[in-house]
Simulated scan of single mutants.
Amino acid sequence: MTSLRERKKAETRQRIADVATLMFVTRGFDNVSIAEIAEAADVSKVTVFNYFPRKEDIFFDRGPQAMELLTAAVRDRAPDESPVRAMRRLFVRQAEEGHPLGGFQDRFVAFWRTVLDSAALRSRAREGMDELTACLAKVIAETSDDPSPDVTAAVIMGAFQAVFAQGVARMLAGSTAVEVTADHIVAVNRAFDRLAGGIS
């Protein structure tokens, strides 16, 4: 059971992220300072940095959740299910749910535009993908006899990133989430069907 202290910390972290994200989307990431975020969230600058080492991490506040989802998908899979199949299942489920970490909703367009408008956020997004790939490689190594878990993880995440980027591009061009989601699920399955030919 989560303690009161842990709940309070989670609430503070979420409040900082929510307040900052609205400011970033409204004004542009590079035009918002940590001092302004702290004031708007009613905390000190030190408190902000206690929860988020860098300003970019406030915007990408779901990074830890992404790692937990990847880890759980592979670690908790059925005995006869490979890591590749487990990740396919996760990506399809996220798309079906419109999950912020792997799905599409019309309101996400403002988030993606904010990323594209900031070199700092684009750089942090690339770092985040590298971190997720390393996390995936680690759990594959721990739960399977894959001789090259780093390669498997890179192929999985590379395939997903390519397919997801296509969906984001369509959304930015004006397509709706409903239109994109159905095609995205087909594209995910097609990509993983191709991977299955070389990775079990």
Rank of each mutant, 00 (worst) to 15 (best):
Ala159Ser: 11
Met87Tyr: 08
Val168Ser: 07
Ile37Tyr: 02
Thr21His: 12
Gly198Asp: 08
Ser200Pro: 11
Val84His: 04
Asp130Lys: 13
Ala137Glu: 02
Thr71Tyr: 09
Ala110Ile: 03
Gln166Lys: 12
Arg113Val: 04
Glu142Lys: 01
Ala177Gly: 11
Pro64Gly: 07
Val43Pro: 01
Phe59Tyr: 15
Arg54Gly: 05
Val46Gly: 15
Arg77Ile: 06
Glu39His: 13
Phe104Pro: 02
Thr133Met: 04
Val84Pro: 00
Ser82Ile: 06
Gln166Val: 12
Asp146Lys: 01
Thr143His: 14
Glu11Arg: 13
Arg88Gly: 00
Arg93Gly: 13
Glu96Asp: 14
Ser148Leu: 12
Met171His: 04
Asp80Ser: 11
Phe192Arg: 02
Ala169Pro: 05
Val74Trp: 01
Thr47Met: 05
Met23Glu: 15
Ala159Trp: 00
Gly102Thr: 03
Val48Lys: 01
Asn50Trp: 13
Ile37Leu: 07
Ile185Phe: 03
Asp150Phe: 08
Arg62Thr: 06
Leu195Tyr: 00
Ala119Val: 12
Phe24Met: 08
Ala120Pro: 07
Ala40Tyr: 06
Gly103Val: 02
Gly197Trp: 12
Tyr51Trp: 10
Phe29Cys: 07
Ala169Trp: 07
Thr21Lys: 14
Val186Ala: 13
Ala137Asn: 01
Thr12Cys: 08
Phe52Ile: 03
Thr71Trp: 04
Arg62Gly: 04
Leu116Thr: 11
Asn50Phe: 11
Arg27Lys: 13
Glu36Thr: 10
Met67Phe: 10
Phe29Asp: 01
Asp61Ser: 15
Ala165Gly: 09
Arg194Asp: 14
Glu36Gly: 08
Pro64Gln: 07
Arg107Trp: 15
Ile185Asn: 02
Ala40Gly: 06
Gly102Met: 02
Ala187Val: 02
Ala125Lys: 10
